[in-house]
């Protein structure tokens, strides 16, 4: 067993966990924050995407004890049904989901992707590595590719992110 203190969605959470517990299972099973999903548990789908100190990661491939003192933002930290985050609202408006299971990961990723573009992080499809990246459809598709949606809502997800990106510039 190991003790770990995390800041989850702004709240301090002290946990005593089996050292083997992933960040994902700490959230879902111990803190009962089940918005973060387990799709594959092996870093192959992106459903477990959360933000740690502002960066998106797959929470299934990291141990909770490795995050002592870290600030974790999950889907529950972005908005609530009565007070949606703009990205959540855009997903509703554009029907950017179907079964809903990959959706929290898609939304967390989308929020982080817009920040990554702003921060000037290049991508596989950036034509020129030495200039600032633009929020193009091709850039968004490539950057969102770590979030699989088997329902195939990609075209709508892209519309949702594009709308939010437009509102930010």
């Amino acid at each position: 067993m190991s003790k770990v203190t995390l800041t989850v969605n702004g709240a301090n959470r002290e946990l005593e966990l089996d050292t083997r517990t992933t960040l994902l299972d700490a959230l879902r099973e111990h803190l009962q924050l089940t918005g973060t999903k387990k799709g594959c548990d092996h870093g192959q789908c992106g459903a477990c995407t959360v933000m740690v100190d502002g960066q998106r990661i797959n929470s299934c491939l990291t141990l909770a004890v490795m995050h002592e003192g870290d600030e974790i933002t999950t889907i529950e930290g972005l908005g609530t049904p009565g007070n949606l985050h703009p990205m959540q609202a855009a997903f509703v408006k554009h029907d950017g989901y179907q079964c809903g299971y990959c959706t929290p990961g898609q939304i967390c990723s989308a929020v982080a992707v817009l920040n990554e573009i702003k921060a000037g992080i290049p991508s596989h499809v950036s034509a020129d590595l030495t200039v600032a990246q633009q929020t193009t459809a091709a850039e968004l598709r490539e950057r969102m590719s770590g979030n699989i949606c088997r329902c195939g809502a990609y075209s709508n997800i892209l519309d949702a992110i594009t709308e939010v990106a437009g509102g930010q510039t």
């Binding site: 491939l61 596989h124 950057r143």
Partner: peptide, 19 residues
Amino acid sequence: YGLLSRALLAGASGQLRNK
């Protein structure tokens, strides 16, 4: 070292590359 940058960006996903 554009080759290195390109190779990294061709791998995995944004989430995995962050970690």
